[in-house]
Each structure stands twice: as C-alpha cells, then as structure tokens.
C-alpha cells in the first residue's frame, strides 16, 4: 500500500536552498576578490585558492572522521575559505593561510557540530588565531601595485598610519595597503548590494554597524569617513557580522548586535593598542548573540491582553 507518499504539510517548498545562499555569498565576494588581484597581483588569487581548497578538504576530512553526512556540497566551507583569504595580507606564507583555514573549519566549525552550530564566525576566528600566533606576518602590509613603493616593501595601512596619508579617492577604490579584501570599498559595496538584492541578508546589520561606528567616530573626534573606508569595517559589516549562525535572528536583536559592533570597533580603534577593532568587536558580539536574541524574542501574535490594537 505504498502507492502514495504521505508526509506532513506543507507539501510545497520555496525555491531557496542553503547551497544557493552560500553560492550567492561567494558571488558577492567576487568583486572584492577581483579587486584584490588587481591591487596585489596573482598572489592574491593563489591565497584565495589555498584557503578555499584547505577549507573544503578540512571539512571533508572532518565529516569523514566524525562519521557524519558529507556537507561540503552546501558550499559553506568555500565561503569560509574566500572570507578568510580576503582577511589576510598578500605577503603571507601560504602555509600560514592553510593553517588558518584548518583552525576555522575544524576547531571553530566542525568541532561544535558543523554548519549552524559554531558560536563565532569561523573565518573571523581563523583570522584572529593567526593574528595572535603570527603577529608580524599578519600585519606585513604590502602596498598595492599602483603605489610608489615597490612590491615587497611594507606599507602602513590607513589604520596604522592614521588619517591623512591617503586620499578619499584611494580609500574608496582600494589603492592602499591592507588585507586582500578590505581595501576596495567599491567592490565590497557592490557585493553588499547583491546580497541585499538577492535577499540573502537584510541591510539592517551593515547599515546599523557602519552608522553607529560613524557616530561614535564623530563623538570621539575622529574622521568618520576614514574610519568607514579603511580597515576591515565594510568587509566586516557586510560579510562577517551578517553571518547567520552568529548573529541574532530577530530584527531588534540585529539592531542591538550591529550597534554594539559599531561602538566596540571604534572604542578599540581609539583606546586599545590595536589599530584593527572590527574583528574583535564582531567576535565579542558573536558570543553575546544568544543573549541578545533571547532578550529580543518577539511577543507572539495576540500575546498582549489588549482587546484592540490601534490602527497603524
């Protein structure tokens, strides 16, 4: 009598899939990846390749060892690889990049149960582990190919050099030192617009993140435009802070989380001995996400004992 399939409703499903979402994120990172190749040469492409291949391989091997269903098909490991690569300086040793990928996938993601279970963003955690372990290699910012200094000679990032070294034009188009993916604001914005248009992310987190950071920057007497266009601000706000797993699902949760990230970033930039605050700010609020989410859980429809609700 198994003529018909019997299952619980709904019997129709939407078109979206995890794989499609992850593919969209990869597509949205392409402009930044292309920009990194333009500014830092083929070495950038090599690093992206190393990170992606290591991430996917690490995920594959982890799943095999843990005897769990294979998940590399959902492309989330590819996303982690690209993101991590974009967070590295172009001069870095590929072995260090590979180590960061393994940490991101094995320690941060798979050991906690795989996709959806990690409590911090894997790429971000990978970057921080490398930053703490290899501080010199991770801050060896090489200038772009269009700058006066020749390849191989270190060049301060706008964050490290403080404002005034670069024109807004260079900052916006990415002609300055920094990690592979954080230099070209235009490429990052294009990716962000694509993600919003595809409804992969809502603009809430990036807008509130950047907005709060700008306000905070003004309050502390810094230059908000330099603060936004330099360092990992846009890369972090658009691609890292919006990670589903480690950001709140509720609207007000997103607002609180993003505002917290914005404030914390500028506080670190201003008062701490680190020029780069985005990573640590996001990491902190990743950890606070469950708390923020439970504090902002919406009231179910009809929960309030009000008889009528005023017209909107």
């Amino acid at each position: 009598m198994n003529k018909f399939f019997v299952s619980a409703s709904p019997h129709l499903r939407g078109k979206g899939s995890t794989q499609r979402i992850m593919l969209d994120v990869v597509i949205s990172l392409l402009p930044a990846a292309i920009a990194s190749v333009v500014f830092f040469g083929w070495r950038a492409l090599m690093l992206v390749g190393v990170c992606v291949i290591t991430c996917v391989a690490a995920e594959y091997i982890s799943r095999v060892i843990m005897k769990r269903d294979q998940t590399i098909g959902d492309l989330s490991a590819v996303v982690t690889g690209v993101l991590l690569a974009l967070n590295l300086p172009s001069s870095i040793n590929p072995l260090i990049a590979a180590l960061g990928s393994v940490v991101a996938i094995v320690v941060v993601k798979q050991m906690f149960g795989g996709i959806g279970m990690n409590f911090v963003n894997p790429a971000l955690a990978g970057r921080i582990v490398l930053l703490v372990s290899f501080p010199a290699a991770m801050t060896d910012w090489v200038g772009t190919r269009f700058m006066e200094n020749i390849d191989g000679i270190s060049s301060a990032t706008p964050m490290a050099a403080q404002a005034g070294t670069y024109s807004y034009f260079d900052l916006f188009f990415g002609n300055h030192g920094g990690s592979l993916g954080e230099t070209c604001a235009l490429a990052l914005l294009l990716g962000g617009i694509y993600l919003v248009a595809r409804k992969v992310i809502s603009p809430t987190i990036p807008v509130v993140f950047v907005g709060t950071a700008a306000v905070m920057s003004l309050i502390l007497g810094r230059n908000p435009i330099v603060d936004i266009l330099s360092g990992g601000m846009l890369l972090g706000a658009i691609f890292m802070a919006t990670d589903y797993t480690t950001s709140p699902m509720t609207f007000w949760g997103k607002v609180i989380y993003a505002a917290g990230c914005g404030v914390m970033t500028i506080l670190i930039r201003n008062f701490a001995n680190l020029p780069e605050g985005v990573s640590f700010a996001i990491l902190l609020f990743n950890i606070l996400t469950p708390l923020i989410e439970s504090a902002t859980t919406p009231k179910p429809f009809g929960y309030e004992k009000k008889k009528k609700e005023g017209a909107k």
Binding site: S17, G113, I115, G116, Y244, M249
Partner: peptide, 12 residues
C-alpha cells in the same frame, strides 16, 4: 518527494 532536511543555518 520532499527534499531531505539538512542542518539549520539560523538564517531567520
């Protein structure tokens, strides 16, 4: 046929 369920990615 319904697709196989995979892990929640907390997309919201």
């Amino acid at each position: 046929k319904l697709s196989e369920a995979t892990d929640c990615i907390r997309c919201g």
